[in-house]
Amino acid sequence: MIVHHVLSIDVVDRSVDPNTGIIRTERILGCKQKAPGWIVRLFGGSEDAYVREVSFVDPATQTATITSVNLSLSQFATCYESIRYTPSPDGRTTFAQTAEIQARVALWRSAADKLENWLVQRFEQNAQLGKLGFTDVLRQLWETREQRTAQQS
C-alpha cells in the first residue's frame, strides 16, 4: 500500500448490487498511529489504531465514495471522513473531501477541546496522504486501461 502508515487491510464485507451494479466494500484498516501520550495514559489503548471504511463504486455514474470512521478510541471521539470521486464535464475528475469530528465525552471541557484540536490537526496532516494513496490506486487502474485502449486504437 502506498500510504505508509496503513499496516493492514482486511475486507469484512463485500456485495455487488445485482440491480445497480454498485460494489459495496467494508474494510478494516490497521494503522500505526500514536495517540498523544496523555490520552494513552488516561484511557489506556495501544499504538494500533483501527478504522472502518465503507466504499461504493458505481460503474454507471463512474463515482467512487469512501467513508471512514475510527474504531479505536471511538468511545471518546469519532472522525467521519468522506471522499468522493466524480467525473466532471471537462473530462477531469472532481475530488471532494469532508470530515466530521466529534468528541463523544462529557469529559471536562479542556480535555475534550484538546482532543478535538489534536484530531483536527491530525486530519489536516493526513488528508493529503489519504488522497494521494487512493489517487495512486485509481491512477494505476485507469492508466493500464488507457494504455490498453491506446494500443488497440
Binding site: T65, V69, A96, Q97
Partner: peptide
C-alpha cells in the same frame, strides 16, 4: 451508521481542497 447505501452527494458538494 450502517452505510448500506452510498451517502447522498449533498454534504460533499463543496470541495474544500
Amino acid at each position: 451508521n450502517p452505510l448500506k447505501e452510498p451517502p447522498p452527494p449533498q454534504p460533499l458538494d463543496n470541495p474544500r481542497s
